[in-house]
Design a binder for these strands. Structure first.
Lengths: 195, 195
DNA sequence: GACGTTAACGGACTGCAGTCCGTTTCGTCA
DNA sequence: TGACGAAACGGACTGCAGTCCGTTAACGTC
């Protein structure tokens, strides 16, 4: 996602990438993701606006880059971690564990994920991370012989969009454990109904 | 939604509301929803920009107003039409019929619905129409004793967001009948898993 | 039908996103 | 180490969303 080192990143480019990420992180932390402008970030990083956009496309792309590390960590736990999140457990259990782990991640990074998903219409469905989660869910659902695993995976992830979860959290005042219980139950239902 | 007549709408206000809606409809038709600016609409309607915003809040609100009539029609068919969409059929059948009917509606008005749902983050969950669909699904799911009908209803509608359906249609090249089949099957699953 | 009140109007104005292009810096090769 | 081509830089510039406030017009009252 960060394409580090692909055909050699120039020294000034690398330097600026780090300056921008550091500036964005600290400004987001201090003022909230929604209240920081791209000009703010450019100024704080001591970099021109063109440089910002050359590297990160838009504010959503910047959010994606900042989320990258945390997402990779969750992805590693899925690929090589202990069951039930990692390999070894029954597919339905792994799916429920994924829902639970993803909701915890979302709860911590809600504003950043929201930005990455809503910067532009359809952004959520175009991130590399989404493709990873989707593929993971599809594979698990296929293992249970669920009907239409492709569709079910997208349905599950649509319900786990930052927009939806934020609404449950902030408008409906649901707690993370409540959402987790309902959504992992629902995930088991999707996995189970095919057998 | 349009609050027509609430505490008397002034004559000039009514006149301008119609001029704006007509202008928006024709410009959207001609250039596509995404390519029309608020200035364009104001100019075409022969009205100041302030007037536009006073009445419709933002571009999404304008889309909501344009969709209003079509949505009401579907809502009437749900409340008073023939089964299985209207009352009389088993809840699971009604839910499947709703999914099917809603997808047809969405297919016709995709760009307008997309605008109404993505104008601002969380817009989809704040429209009056969403509240109607949600309530309808919750009631049907309650009839089948499904677990967590509130959550299941939101999950279903999240999957029927304009963003998601547009992705299935345009990126994944799925046909409306294919999506309808999968999603109404899934809706039956949500309704059925509680028995 | 003049008059005052109040809602509605309109367009200049502000702020932010995103682009464009002349200038600078990097890395390479002679 | 000097010089060249390519890549990256930076900030002025454009366009659109949304606001603000002085002006205008509707409508109830006498």
């Amino acid at each position: 996602m960060l394409d580090v080192g692909v055909v050699h990143e120039r020294a000034d480019a690398a330097r600026n990438r780090l300056k921008v990420l550091a500036a964005a992180e600290s400004l987001f932390e201090e003022h909230g993701v929604a209240n920081v402008t791209m000009d703010d970030i450019a100024a704080e990083a001591g970099v021109g606006k063109g440089t910002l956009y050359r590297r990160f496309v838009d504010k959503g792309g910047l959010a994606v880059a900042l989320l990258d590390e945390l997402e990779r960590e969750l992805q590693q736990r899925i690929l090589r971690g202990a069951p039930p999140l990692g390999p070894g457990a029954p597919a339905a259990d792994r799916l429920a564990a994924f829902v639970s782990a993803y909701l915890r991640f979302l709860d911590r990074q809600l504003d950043l994920v929201l930005m990455s998903e809503t910067a532009t219409p359809g952004a959520r469905l175009r991130t590399g991370a989404h493709e990873f989660w989707r593929q993971h869910c599809v594979l698990l659902l296929q293992e249970t012989d669920a009907p239409a695993p492709d569709i079910s995976a997208e349905v599950l992830l649509a319900a786990l969009s930052a927009e939806q979860v934020r609404h449950w959290l902030r408008e409906d005042q649901l707690s993370v454990p409540k959402i987790t219980k309902a959504m992992s139950g629902l995930a088991r239902g999707l996995a189970g109904s095919g057998r």
